[in-house]
Nucleic acid binder design. Structure first.
Length: 581
RNA sequence: GCCGGCGUGGCUCAAUGGAAGAGCGGCGCACUCGUAAUGCGCAGGUUGUGGGUUCGAUUCCCACCGCCGGCUCCA
């Protein structure tokens, strides 16, 4: 009971209130805004003229402990809207006043009080401040009042709270673990990628280790798409402004696009999306209903202007390669195509060991239908197909009203990594807009032109984001099939190097990525380095191995595996590569 | 973009309004070694950039750039 999500939420919410009370005690001029419980903790937003400092957090924590010791009873009482307004106006809590003013339909609100501190709150709370125990304030950040950048920026203090010390410690430890897994840190340590101040923010440089990982993923991706009836296409990186006017990007996406490049007096734009290019290819000839569906896939590199504050390692960048595809089909094919994309999504996620993922159906906001293109009929048809496809694929999903793009409904997949963190993964979007704008069609059985349905989908998202996710998911210890170096040979002494080099050839012949550490260092040292680089297998070559023709194998995860026959080891690796483990 | 913080050799981090230091890494030499660090030596920094204050700035001030934590936004 104590550990249920609800009780933790109450605990955290009450801790947020205690924090607000402490802040008011220490800084009476501060105005309080809102302070909810969130996943793993809580926050409270304050309006304070001077910024909070790290030292302030310590003071606030100390005051909070005092309040908890005081064991103030927390009482909720219902008051009239007017009474509450009066109270907060008198105490000059303008944010609370605004919140109440924005609830014209209610005539009663609840005020919770603990000692001298009174807050507008729906509750519930713990009975008294003494019930709170283990908490920690984590960070200070800016946050807009009511989440809109048009509003004033407030100061937010984040904290966390748990029923027991152990849980709090575990959580802090988990945060530290997360920090160690950060792809920016591991990406540097494992020599996977870099970013450069001189080159410009948000632009990724893939080092050889990252390059081989990307190559493996891309090859796998291409092969799988060909197997599943996709065709591979390539398109340019720039196009005339005219194209973006036709597609509508110039109107509604211009803020995210880079300034035009002048070529012979004509404006060209760097592509933020691949779709218009695929549509141009579609239009190169008359399409028959018999030709459909067309499934055109491209690892297309796009450039989007991202505001400086949002850039983040390889997860959020300004140039990235989408694993894009556009499917053109007849309306009656929509459901089957969605089913096949879902199947591909599941296959890909499982291949990369993402075991948990949640499907969401992103649909229109029913209250604002005029914000979307396309008639009710086509929306209903598309939505029905998406739902029916997910049902047939036996996939539970959540309906997310208002999450659709303006041009059509979508299935969005959230994937969970090894630490249980969620990531935006695959998306399958139906597009009613572009087929209209480009006036694409196919000739039906009735010898008349018809509008095809278009699906836009990515499975991995982008190579940058996906690999960043993989680094963190695997903690840098990639499974053998993805490891940049699969086996490292460690010769014991210089006289073993020639033999090691010979072995290297044998492994190469089996397409195993192998290298020899021929430096004049001790075995222990070389093993340590290979471990730190997370090389899956090390083979030690000394006199014994040369005499017996066998290999001494060490696994990065299981340690010394002892002596194996060479074919036995190669089979083992081959099996792991094939099983992607 | 906004709020706050930060910016010292490749990396991690010291130090100070008055000669910039360590560990790791790199290079050299010796050691030829059996499952997570051999020893010794050497090199490497105009302290992010540009201004200002000062006899003197890496330290104080301003601007810019970049990074970090968030907000908003997103593949």
């Amino acid at each position: 009971m104590v550990n249920s999500e609800e009780s933790k939420e109450i605990l955290r919410h009450s801790t947020a209130h205690v924090m607000a009370q402490a802040v008011k005690r220490l800084f009476p001029e501060v105005k309080v805004a809102i302070g909810p419980a969130i996943e793993n903790g809580f926050y409270y937003d304050f309006d304070k003229p001077e910024p909070f400092t790290q030292q302030d957090l310590g003071l606030i924590e100390k005051e909070m402990k005092k309040i908890i010791k005081e064991d103030l009873p927390i009482d909720g009482k219902e008051v009239s809207r007017e009474e509450a307004l009066k109270f907060f106006r008198e105490s000059d809590e303008i944010y609370k006043v605004e919140l109440i003013e924005d609830m014209p339909d209610v005539d009663k609100v609840t005020l919770y009080s603990q000692g001298e501190f009174v807050d507008l709150c729906r509750g519930p709370h713990v009975e008294s401040t003494g019930k709170l125990k283990e908490f920690k304030l984590l960070s200070i950040a800016g946050a807009y009042w009511r989440g809109s950048e048009k509003n004033k920026m407030l100061q937010r203090i984040y904290g966390t709270a748990f029923p027991t010390r152990k849980q709090l410690d575990d959580y802090i430890e988990m945060l530290e673990e997360t920090e160690k897994r950060d792809h920016r840190r591991l990406g540097k340590e494992l020599d996977i990628f870099s970013l450069h101040e001189e080159g410009g923010p948000g632009l990724v440089y893939w080092h050889p280790k990252g390059g081989i990982i990307r190559k493996i993923i891309e090859d796998f991706w291409r092969d799988e798409h060909l197997k599943r009836g996709y065709d591979l296409v390539f398109s340019p990186h720039i196009a005339k402004r005219d194209l973006w006017e036709i597609s509508g990007h110039w109107d509604w996406y211009r803020d995210d696009m880079y300034s035009p490049i002048d070529i012979d007096g004509i404006e060209y734009l760097l592509k933020p999306m691949n779709c218009p290019f695929h549509i141009l290819m579609y239009k190169t000839k008359t399409r028959s209903y018999r030709d459909l569906p067309l499934r055109w896939a491209e690892l297309g590199t796009v450039y989007r202007y991202e505001r400086s504050g949002v850039l983040h390692g390889m997860l959020r960048v300004r140039g990235f390669t989408q694993d894009d595809a556009h499917l053109f089909m007849r309306p009656d094919q929509l459901e089957d195509e969605i089913i096949s994309v879902i199947d591909l999504v599941k296959f890909m996620m499982e291949s990369f060991n993402y075991k948990e993922y949640d499907f969401e159906l992103s649909i229109r906001d029913p209250k604002n239908k005029d914000q979307y293109v396309g008639s009710d009929d086509v929306w209903d048809m598309a939505e029905a197909s998406l739902i029916s496809a997910m049902k047939k694929a036996d996939i539970p999903f959540k309906r997310m009203e208002g999450e659709a793009k303006f041009y059509g409904p979508a299935i969005d997949v959230q994937i969970k990594d090894a630490l249980g963190r969620g990531w935006q993964g695959p998306t399958i979007q139906v597009d009613f807009n572009l087929p209209e704008r480009f006036d694409i069609n196919y000739i039906g059985e009735d010898n008349a032109p018809h509008r095809p349905v278009m699906i836009h989908r990515t499975v991995l998202g982008s190579m940058e984001r996906f690999v960043a996710g993989l680094i963190e998911h695997y903690n840098g210890a990639f499974p053998v099939w993805l490891s940049p170096v699969q086996v490292r040979i460690i010769p014991v002494a210089d006289r073993h190097i020639d033999y090691a080099k010979g072995l290297e050839g044998t492994f190469r012949h089996e397409n195993i990525r192998i290298e020899t550490d021929a430096r004049p260092e001790k075995v222990g040292y070389k093993i340590r380095e290979a471990q730190l680089e997370k090389v899956p297998y090390m083979i030690i070559i000394g006199d014994k191995e040369i005499d017996s023709g066998k290999v001494s194998v060490r696994s990065r995860s299981e340690g010394d595996l002892g002596v194996l026959e060479l074919p036995e080891f190669i089979t083992r690796i081959g099996h792991e590569i094939q099983k992607k483990i």
